[in-house]
């Protein structure tokens, strides 16, 4: 029989263990990253053509719990994005589409934003101009005016893979001044949402977008043509392809 004297301590212990288990499940740090073998198995789930010659080109930790794994299946270059959640490594996205991406590792913290790519070196692609754009806008309501200046920042990224001996992939953090702008911009946009409920941890809809313009050696616009590229995404949209920037988008 249970003695009433013990009932409370036992109950407390059970609650504590429960809280501990939940905390461990959701917040504990990551285990060792997947082995090359495990990664190859995962890749084969999406690309049946992945044979024994498939190569894991590198394993790049963006931070403790976000990992970028570029891979190569013969002459097909692919990227995969992994994150640690609920006690396992999960796939965020895997693709062989030859378009660089931006990964908002923590969507609320611009200092974690990175550009990533793995581009076939067997094309004329030489370099890319990467953009962050917030288009000029205005808004009038009850005679109250709001004007949004056009924000347009860019950086040039050489695709060194084009010289064959070098890497075909890369990870580059967005520049400091982009981060400074985004930090302030997000804070203000976030504060504009009525301070309602628990739901405002949702990321605000933002008009800021990221894009690119690829060039060949002669400086002409050149989009690498890779047939049969495909991609699979899971969960949120923290990984975005860079939009193709047209002449009328930039000032």
């Amino acid at each position: 029989m249970w003695n009433t004297r013990f009932r409370l301590p036992i109950l407390l212990t059970i609650i504590l263990i429960g809280i501990g288990a939940i905390y461990y499940y959701y917040y504990s740090g990551p285990d060792e990253f997947l082995s090359e073998g495990a990664l190859l198995d995962e890749i084969r789930d999406y690309y049946y053509e992945a044979d024994s010659s498939t190569e894991i080109q590198d394993i790049i930790f963006i931070d403790e719990s976000h990992v970028f794994v570029p891979f190569r299946i013969n002459n097909i270059y692919g990227t995969s994005y992994w994150y640690w959640e609920k006690r396992k490594w999960n796939l965020r996205r895997i693709d062989t589409i030859q378009t660089p991406t931006i990964w908002r590792v923590d969507p609320e913290d611009p200092s974690t934003f990175v550009f990533l790519w793995n581009m076939s070196p067997d094309t004329d692609l030489h370099e890319g101009e990467f953009f962050m754009i917030n288009p000029r806008n205005y808004f009038v309501s009850n005679n109250v005016h709001t004007y949004t200046p056009h924000v347009q920042l860019s950086m040039t990224i050489p695709f060194t893979g084009t010289s064959n001996s070098e890497k075909s992939f890369g990870v580059v953090s967005i520049p400091e001044d982009w981060k400074v702008f985004l930090q302030e911009y997000y804070e203000v946009e976030h504060a504009k949402i009525p301070n309602d409920s628990f739901f405002d941890s949702f990321f605000p809809h933002s008009s800021v977008y990221f894009g690119w313009k690829p060039f060949d050696k002669e400086g002409n616009i050149y989009y690498p043509q890779i047939p049969n590229g495909s991609g699979y995404g899971f969960g949120d949209s923290s990984v975005d392809y860079l939009r193709n920037i047209n002449e009328y988008d930039i000032e």
Binding site: Y138, H145, Y147, D249
Partner: peptide, 18 residues
Amino acid sequence: PFDSIEWYNDINFNMEPA
């Protein structure tokens, strides 16, 4: 006071993007 429409139109309707 400011007129956001005027600012916007002066730039976007009167000038080529470049």
